[in-house]
Amino acid sequence: MAEVVVVTSGKGGVGKTTSTAALGAALAQGGENVVVVDFDVGLRNLDLIMGAERRVVFDLINVVQGDAKLHQALIRDKRLENLSLMPASQTRDKDALTEAGVARVIDELREKFDWIICDSPAGIERGATLAMRHADRAVVVTNPEVSSVRDSDRIIGLLDSKTAKAEKGQRLSKHLLLTRYDPVRAQRGEMLKTEDVLEILSIPLLGIIPESQDVLRASNLGAPVTINSPASVAARAYAEAAKRLRGETVEISIPAERPSFLGKLFGRRAVA
């Protein structure tokens, strides 16, 4: 039974695309058949983060409008054969996405894959509402920062009212993915703590991704961080989040790089 997951946030730049790529790759590394779908029409980037920008021929809009078959637009990852990408169009605008067209494409993808991970554009406009429309679950990507938390709260409201599941009176499960987290700064009272964000947004925690240089290095190289540096703290955190998505019980930890001087000073230890 296929699961449609929307990765959304409201605010831009919090790590939706990075998280879509990393979670999608982690699920595929765990043996699942995965497609990551870029809904950011006109500002596509998932192709670049996945390192497939030179392989795009047809895109989501072509398939929605019936100009290309599904298999023509799907790009199979060169590193993981059970991971595919459906790119967005860079030249068209979001109005080219029709509700009926998106519904048809999602239904077709459900036949082929175990997981359909939809990378939502920022904002609350058409592109974002269509990305969440057919989701069974939502991953709400949030930074421990006031504007991101506020926008996530707004998105949670939309997930509860504007999705097909919500309109049918069904429950859409929502998960919080806290990204760019700095445990040392949170401990010092300089940054919102995980507990603060959880209390405000009141949705269950999927994972905490610490701020990490490996994420930028991975996107520079065009590889999800879980493929490029699987031993890094960010990759481990994403891999654990992916396991929780699959229903496994994995205790939440904030993986640390190494016990730094400050970490020792404030009593934090590295989590192996």
Partner: peptide, 27 residues
């Protein structure tokens, strides 16, 4: 200067309580 996180938390709690009821009104 360090204790800015509790301020952020309180501001968000007050703001979101207000905004959630406003969105309810729109419906």
């Amino acid at each position: 200067r360090r204790d800015s996180a509790p301020v952020a938390r309180n501001r968000l709690q007050v703001l979101l309580q207000h905004e959630r009821s406003a969105v309810g009104n729109n419906d």
